[in-house]
C-alpha cells in the first residue's frame, strides 16, 4: 500500500505541467525621437497643398527630403550616423532610437552625407538610411554620392487668377562641396511618455525661398542638380535650407 502511495505521488509529480515562473520586469529603455515639422510661414505645410508667397506666386510642394549625418553631442557621443527625412514617405518622423536625451543638450554634425558619401550604397545594412533600397532617389551613383537635400514643387507664377501649376521647381543639392555643418545648442527635449523624449525641429519652407539675405526667385531660379554652372543656386538652396531648419 505504501508503494502504491509512492507511485501516486511520483505520477502526480511527473504529470505536473511546468508552471511558468514570472520573469523580472525589464527596466524600460529610454527612447529618443526627433521630428521635423515643415511649415510655410506660420502654417503647417502639407504636400500637394497650395501656399502663397509674399509676391502672390503660389506653390505646391511634392517632395521634401534631406540627410543629416554624424550627429553627435559636444563630447563626440554619437546620436546617429545618418538620418533621412522623407516627408512623403515618413511624415514628420526623423529619428527614433534608444538613448538618453540628457546626453544631447547639444547636437552637431552635417546637413548632407559626410564620410559615407562615396561608399557602396548596396553595402550598408538593410536598416540604414544610406542603403540604396532606402534612399528613394537620393543616391546619384558612387562618384557624386548622395543628394543631401531634395525639394520638388510645382508653382503658378502667373498670378492671373487661374490655378495652373505648370512651373516645375527641382532643387537637388549634393556633392561634397555643398556639405553643411550644423550645430544646435540648448535643445528642448520634451517628455512624451513611455520613457521617450522628443526633440522637434521646424522647417520653414517659406523662409527657404524668401530669406532676406538671399531670396530665391522661382521664375528664374527653379532647377539645380548641383552640376557645373549651377553652383550659385545650389549653395543658396542648401544654405537657406539650413537657416530655415531649427529646433523648436
Amino acid at each position: 500500500m505504501r508503494i502504491l502511495g509512492f507511485i501516486c505521488v511520483f505520477g502526480l509529480m511527473l504529470s505536473c505541467k511546468n508552471e511558468k515562473v514570472d520573469e523580472p520586469i525589464p527596466t524600460p529603455e529610454n527612447q529618443i525621437k526627433v521630428t521635423v515639422q515643415p511649415y510655410f510661414g506660420s502654417e503647417k505645410l502639407y504636400l500637394d497643398s497650395i501656399f502663397t508667397f509674399s509676391d502672390g506666386n503660389q506653390i505646391k510642394f511634392t517632395d521634401i527630403k534631406f540627410y543629416f549625418s554624424e550627429l553627435t553631442n559636444d563630447n563626440s557621443v554619437q546620436l546617429i550616423d545618418a538620418a533621412f527625412f522623407n516627408y512623403r514617405q515618413k511624415g514628420i518622423s526623423f529619428i527614433s532610437k534608444p538613448g538618453n536625451y540628457s546626453d544631447f543638450s547639444t547636437l552637431k554634425g552635417f546637413l548632407g552625407v559626410h564620410n559615407d558619401n562615396h561608399k557602396d550604397p548596396s553595402a550598408f545594412p538593410n536598416d540604414s538610411p544610406l542603403n540604396i533600397m532606402n534612399t528613394d532617389g537620393m543616391h546619384w551613383g558612387w562618384n557624386p554620392g548622395y543628394s543631401f537635400v531634395q525639394i520638388e514643387a510645382k508653382a503658378d507664377t502667373l498670378n492671373d487668377g487661374n490655378l495652373n501649376f505648370d512651373h516645375t521647381i527641382v532643387f537637388h543639392v549634393g556633392t561634397d562641396q555643398f556639405l553643411q555643418n550644423v550645430n544646435y545648442s540648448n535643445l528642448n527635449w520634451q517628455s512624451i511618455g513611455n520613457y521617450t523624449h522628443q526633440l522637434a525641429f521646424k522647417l520653414d519652407m517659406k523662409e527657404v525661398f524668401e530669406i532676406n539675405s538671399q531670396p530665391i526667385n522661382i521664375k528664374t531660379e527653379f532647377m539645380t542638380h548641383s552640376s557645373a554652372g549651377q553652383e550659385a543656386l545650389s549653395l543658396k538652396v542648401i544654405q537657406n535650407f539650413k537657416t530655415a531648419l531649427n529646433p523648436m
Binding site: P121, S122, I132, D136, G137, H139, W140, G141, H225, S227
Partner: peptide, 22 residues
C-alpha cells in the same frame, strides 16, 4: 542616360536595380 541635361533617365532609373521604386 545619366546626364541631367541629356536624356535625364537617371532620376527614376538608377543604381544596381535600375529603378527608383516609386
Amino acid at each position: 542616360f545619366k546626364s541631367l541635361n541629356g536624356a535625364d533617365c537617371f532620376h527614376c532609373h538608377n543604381g544596381p536595380l535600375m529603378q527608383v521604386e516609386k
